[in-house]
Simulated assay, not measured.
Amino acid sequence: MLVSNDIGIDLGTASILVYIKGKGVVLKEPSVVAIDRDSNKIMAIGEEARLMIGRTPGNIIAVRPLRQGVISDYTVTEKMLKYFINKAVGKRTLRKPRIAVCIPSGATEVEKKAVEDATYQAGAREVSIIEEPVAAAIGAGIDISKACGNMIVDIGGGTADIAVISLGGTVVSTSIKVAGDDFDEALVRYMRKKHNLLIGERTAEEIKINIGSAYRRPEVLKMEVRGRNLVTGLPKTIEVTSEETLEALREPAMQIVDAVHNVLERTPPELAADIFDRGIVMTGGGSLLNGLDQLIEEKTGITTMVAEDPLTAVAIGTGKFIEFQHGDKKEQEFN
């Protein structure tokens, strides 16, 4: 019996993670592709291409084929998937792998179909599509098969998915297109308005990771930021404090809090009581923004915690979902 490869893929706007059964997360790369416009050839994929963002000559463009959690450029996504699957599995597998891919809970049928087709084209034997919050819950170590309400807030790069899960499925959910990328954009806008400084998206991401905060920090952190002064047109360095990022990120952070509130309003009372007892679990890279959990906790009055490994939770959950699915089939055979 050949070992069948079960692969879970977290197809994210910002990064792609590949989980292989028995090995864990084997690959984590940014979902960026660099294309040569003249010959339409792909120059680089992943980390290599990310370093090219905002630094390319005219004929090369660094693109993110996934926008807000769904495919915006089909052919490039297909090639990128193929590359990542081959890189993770290796070319020597005789049998095509079974692949589970996750998509935001608000994705339409057409968007689901596009992801499914792209995965088959990239060389899958079987494809199962999972909703992100369900995968995030499994990856965060929650037993989703019980009749007990759990609330998951999964903040990725392009979308934030908020869902209440019980008995292995979603009860109420919402998917908003406010997430990590919007935090970056808010910082770019703020720097332009307040300091007349133009910064790139990579610098904005660095500010967010190092000193970004959604809730007042006990100590004020500072960071030097380089960009282009819009008045003189020359490069300039200024010092930015975490207090300023608090002001810049207030709007997108509050949008996420409002979405959480909205889901809680639509939750059946029994499940709402469970959530109040068990708390809200946050996953995804966006949940690492300092103080976002405290903000949600303050506004909802429910304990909020960030999962142990928020970045890989969705990928792990996607991989485990295949086992969960096929495990169920075995049980039915005995009845």
Results as ranks from 00 to 15, higher is better:
Ile99Ala: 08
Val164Asp: 13
Val314Cys: 09
Asn210Val: 05
Val115Met: 10
Ile144Cys: 07
Ile162Met: 07
Thr245Asn: 08
Met43Ile: 10
Phe183Cys: 11
Ala100His: 07
Asn262Ala: 12
Ile199Val: 13
Ile138Cys: 05
Asn86His: 03
Met43Cys: 03
Lys330Leu: 13
Ile142His: 02
Leu264Val: 13
Leu311His: 10
Thr203His: 05
Ile211Asn: 10
Gly200Leu: 06
Ile9Glu: 08
Glu265Cys: 12
Glu297Pro: 09
Val164Met: 09
Gly58Pro: 12
Thr13Phe: 00
Gly156Ala: 07
Glu251Asp: 14
Asp73Asn: 15
Glu224Leu: 08
Arg228Gly: 01
Leu81Arg: 12
Ile42Gln: 05
Ile296Arg: 06
Leu271Met: 10
Thr75Pro: 06
Leu198Asn: 10
Asp10Cys: 00
Ile103Ala: 13
Arg37Lys: 15
Val115His: 09
Val153Trp: 06
Ile61Gly: 01
Glu297Tyr: 04
Arg50Lys: 15
Val32Phe: 00
Leu187Met: 15
Pro65His: 01
Asp274Arg: 01
Ile35Thr: 10
Glu201Met: 10
His195Gly: 09
Ile322Glu: 08
Ser31His: 02
Gly168Asn: 14
Ala307Arg: 06
Asp38Thr: 14
Gln325Gly: 03
Gly284Lys: 05
Asn59Glu: 14
Ser213Gly: 06
Thr237Phe: 01
Leu198Gln: 07
Arg226Ala: 05
Glu333Thr: 07
Ala137Arg: 07
Asp36Trp: 00
Glu247Arg: 12
Thr300Phe: 00
Gly319Lys: 10
Asp161Ile: 04
Pro97Ala: 03
Tyr19Ile: 06
Ile53Phe: 01
Thr170Tyr: 03
Asn59His: 15
Met254Tyr: 15
Gly156Met: 02
Asp277Tyr: 02
Ala315Thr: 11
Arg228Asn: 07
Leu2Asp: 14
Arg64Ile: 00
Glu247Met: 09
Asp182Thr: 12
Ala204Glu: 11
Arg98Asp: 12
Leu230Pro: 04
Gly46Ala: 08
Ser15Thr: 04
Met151Lys: 07
Gly285Ala: 09
Asp161Arg: 12
Ile209Glu: 13
Gly212Ser: 12
